[in-house]
Design a protein around this nucleic acid. Sequence first.
DNA 1: CGTTACTTTGAAGCGCGTCAAGTGGTGTGG
DNA 2: CCACACCACTTGACGCGCTTCAAAGTAACG
Lengths: 262, 262
Amino acid sequence: MPHHLIRKLDRSAGLSANDKDALTRLVRETAWFNTDQDLIDEGDTLRQVSVILNGWACCYKQLADGRRQIIAYLLPGDVCSTPLVFPNLVDYSVRALTPVRTARIDGQDMLSTMERSAGIARAFWLDTLATAAIQREWTANVGLRTARERIAHLFCEIVTRLHAVGLADQDSCTLPLTQEDLGEAVGLSAVHVNRTLQDLRASGLITLKRQQLTIPDFAALRSVAHFDDSYLCRRAGPVFDANRVPASQRLDVERVGPRMLA
Amino acid sequence: MPHHLIRKLDRSAGLSANDKDALTRLVRETAWFNTDQDLIDEGDTLRQVSVILNGWACCYKQLADGRRQIIAYLLPGDVCSTPLVFPNLVDYSVRALTPVRTARIDGQDMLSTMERSAGIARAFWLDTLATAAIQREWTANVGLRTARERIAHLFCEIVTRLHAVGLADQDSCTLPLTQEDLGEAVGLSAVHVNRTLQDLRASGLITLKRQQLTIPDFAALRSVAHFDDSYLCRRAGPVFDANRVPASQRLDVERVGPRMLA
DNA sequence: CGTTACTTTGAAGCGCGTCAAGTGGTGTGG
DNA sequence: CCACACCACTTGACGCGCTTCAAAGTAACG
């Protein structure tokens, strides 16, 4: 059932045929949500995981005065909360940005399946790490890039992620987000998102019409965005490179005594 | 040896005496780093974890043109990378902000210890989840708060985290950061950090002198910052509350058919 | 075909960045 | 012991990027 999730996990961690079957059998039920409906509320204690089957959602935080920040987009194949620990008290809400269909997986089933299959366990760990890497990149995106760069970077990320689940062709994908949705994700007002989009359009970097995003020259957009996709691709298996010596093993030479401790 | 880590894990997940012993024995060697020295470089493939024993460090990302964003502060007891998967290709660098002493733990030792002790495994999972929660909060902090709120929020987080490892008394702690270090973490220029600090001082919300931060009225600062510490406290064990029904189980009533799929 | 929601455009204002000069504390070398 | 250099902090002036408010235009949907 969860095609996109399986495709993504297989791509990054490798799954056996048995593992794929086990994942399919994990899904007990599916659920529908309308646009703007909350899948999860901040403070909920989850005993199951939901996986996005179709549609887009977002994780967001809200202040008492109504200001909102989208901290992640959830695309088909994405998991709505950490699939590793139950019960899981979440510190964010999840809302559907389009009509969404999800698969519900019981937490105990999840854990026992991960116990039976090291491959599935590893796949979910890697996926959780990848999610954390995206979160780090979003912090940096909002913290140090200009409006133009932020939106360009977001678009680069989205098409790359959609590509990993087979939902983007070479240079275009659907983008079912309002300019306000974009603004809340990159920390800009909707008005300024509008002006920035027109700037990107005028530069020939994107076309965006009727929820269809096209990137005629990905390398150009990537360069504007300072986009480096390595945070999105955690390769499977041992990736150790003997030619590369980590900094943490290189320091013996300069290592000296302490001068003062904080 | 890693007192602060053990204290933190015990506080959030609960550790048996055996687990604490096992953690202590995990440490094979320690290392010293000077201020501004890199512990980890972006792109390194780690086969071990480092734990901060003393001093402060930061995770950061850097663009080609030199702009830097600090995406996390590492305090005593914090782990420098994810302790769950090896080899681990990291997408950020880690730099000492003060002289730092770290404990080095071999990745295989880490994993086999986690296999032998479910308590230790659970503790590191929860700690990893807590780190991810902090990252989400940082994204929101930089994305939607004003300069005044951002810095106030950061200070609230720091004292709360230091308190968890026993390095802050009731209303004060050391803050061995330059104003530039602060600015790179909250996405502001050092000059504006300076002005904002003086604003906070003038409001009587903080005193900050000779790397000593004092918060005379924590509730007042928390209110300015819109700080809610729940993202920092993942309680141990089943926290399920039967009186609270998650949104994802509440939707049957409004659940309707799809209108359109993205 | 009317209504609603999203996008677009303009004008005004503020928060924050940048540049630049000056201050104070700390360690260093003569 | 003093002079100097260095670094972090401070302060002022100016400008830009982005926000806000407001209104008009346009596409989607019942």
